[in-house]
Design a protein around this nucleic acid. Structure first.
Lengths: 342, 342
DNA sequence: TTGTAGGCGTTATCAA
DNA sequence: TTGATAACGCCTACAA
């Protein structure tokens, strides 16, 4: 894999490397004939400038680092898809790393990415992360960072999130309007930003409809295995038992469904925040599940746009703020399915 | 983001850059005291070698290029997960690109990756790709390439695939053993490697059990939208109609399920090749779906291992071959669920 | 209009 | 044991 360099072209054409360089970028005054000659030869030899040499010279790599808790997760893989689309359009490549929901690995990965000379960082925090000094330090050095989905208010960086509050409000409101009063909310750890936003939306909807908030209906589940079952058990042992479930993720939604089925309990309706790539799945579950669809791809796109903006205009005072992308509530009730039957 | 360089250290310690360099890599003979001094200072200043400078010098980037049709796809995101795990352990970063199932974009992306100076390429072909000259050219230049999942026999590169033949055989055999005789096989375009392997397994099982192969039961579906419905219609209009479906992917499995439900038809059993991240989903569908589980993560791991091997021992004659990773057939029948009910 | 030289950060070679 | 120099590929200020 020996690639053609400017030096090779110069030698072959009996020119200096600077002349060749100028001819190729077309900038400086240069003899039209020389330019044509160089261009032709470069074309023929399939010359491509070495991006590594350029990076070294320009002190920029045109690479964006992306850190997510997990790649093999519909929400994040869709986000990455959105990031990738924007990045490639603007001439950036994307290096992806995973924190595996571990604070330590997140810190390590951030350091590695920076050592690798990425031009900026897009990050969604691990579920263990409640200390963001590793990011604050970078920011003080003026290193471009944009956070998405799982963010932290302690960092003065641009943040792109789904409108979790509105989504949770809409989901809860829908359940109330269909007659539910005891809506269980099974969600992720309490200190995470998205948890708080969703919980707030849930509470606001209850309040608006005059339903007292019952904290025993709210359960926080970590990211380990087999944690959902006992929680569902516990909820069902309440009297009165919940008459609806509002879950915070695919994983929890499926866990609750499985637990309910195992106990042979049929809940009138379940709504979940989801990131299923193929939303058809939600409709084909038994029973079908209503969903608060997260605009994963759009979140990725907007995050990438803002980061590149930050990288390219190296202003000291970039516009920092939180961008909320709307969610969409899709109702899927068993009754609706029957309509399809002939 | 000014980083500390060897030069900075040299200046601060009144040494030459070569001495500092030696001290840091510890290799050459060097005064123990000097070494200690340099190490300490480097540590204190949080020195990190500039990987771009190293790449330029060593003519290697320690980056692996990965090209998949889609990131937002359970199978591929799991594969990437496996690749990432191995790569990071061996000091490589991973740059991911998507071909979006387009031949043109695949060619473009391959060229871009090479221009970016990745040390090697892991690729799963787009569904449109049946010409692999863009890869053959690279190979002739001795550029390391490993293919996975969607491979091509026309390329003499290592290939890592699921044991599609055995998986399809097992699925078909299972359906036959439960009494099915007219097993529809809804699959992807005919020229793709995995299609052929699965079709061969399907046919072999039929043959072994003395069931004549009926080509009208085999349907190839492209990657566009809304293509599944009319095909299911058509299959159901046959007489006798199929008594089982064996589908080649998540997307086709769900498409068939939805189409069947829309027509209010209940098929006794459906088996599919799948890559669902959360296999719980298959069990919670209505009806639950049996699956040929693809070892996506392992495929990624093995592919990454083989590629890195290829990169690091720059032998002219690397061991080339096809590695088959076993699949796993998981039976999920409605009757099994009933057992769980109290 | 073209060539020379220096530098981005690092290391290998040779000289001191 | 340490330092000076050249080189990786590219660009550009300056000299010719």
């Amino acid at each position: 894999m020996e690639a053609v360099t400017i030096k090779d072209i110069a030698r072959a054409l009996n020119l200096s490397t600077s002349t060749v360089s100028r001819a190729l970028r077309g900038s400086y005054e240069i003899n039209a004939e020389t330019k044509r000659l160089v261009m032709e030869y470069a074309e023929r030899m399939n010359y491509r400038p070495n991006p590594i040499a350029l990076s070294l010279k320009e002190n920029r790599s045109r690479v964006i680092g992306v850190i997510v808790p997990q790649i093999a997760n519909d929400f994040f893989s869709q986000t990455i898809n959105g990031i990738e689309a924007i990045a490639y359009n603007r001439g950036y490549h994307v290096i992806i790393s995973q924190s595996h929901e571990s604070f330590e690995r997140e810190v390590l990965t951030v350091q590695q990415s920076v050592a690798r000379k990425v031009d900026g960082l897009l990050i969604s925090l691990s579920s263990q992360t409640n200390d963001v000094t590793h990011l604050q330090e970078l920011q003080q050095k003026n290193f471009p960072i944009v956070m998405f989905d799982r963010v932290s208010a302690e960092l003065e960086a641009s943040q792109i999130i789904a409108d979790n509050y509105a989504g949770a409000f809409a989901a809860t409101e829908h359940l109330i309007q269909t007659g539910r009063r005891r809506i269980a909310h099974v969600t992720i750890p309490a200190y995470m930003s998205i948890t708080q936003q969703r919980l707030a939306g849930y509470r606001a909807a209850l309040e608006q409809y005059g339903i007292p908030f019952d904290e025993t209906l709210v359960r926080h589940v970590g990211f380990g295995q087999h944690e959902v079952d006992p929680i569902v058990d516990d909820l069902l042992n309440q009297s009165p038992a919940p008459d609806a479930f509002f879950t915070a993720s695919d994983r929890l939604a499926l866990g609750c469904l499985a637990a309910l089925r195992k106990r042979n309990v049929i809940i009138p309706e379940q709504v979940s925040f989801i990131g299923f790539t193929n939303l058809l799945v939600a409709d084909l579950l038994d029973p079908p599940m209503s969903t608060v669809v997260q605009p994963a791809q759009e979140i990725g796109q907007v995050a990438a746009e803002q980061l590149i903006e930050l990288i390219e205009r190296k202003q000291k005072a970039p516009a920092i703020g939180t961008t909320k992308i709307p969610t969409q509530l899709i109702i899927r009730a068993s009754s609706m399915r029957e309509k399809h039957l002939v």
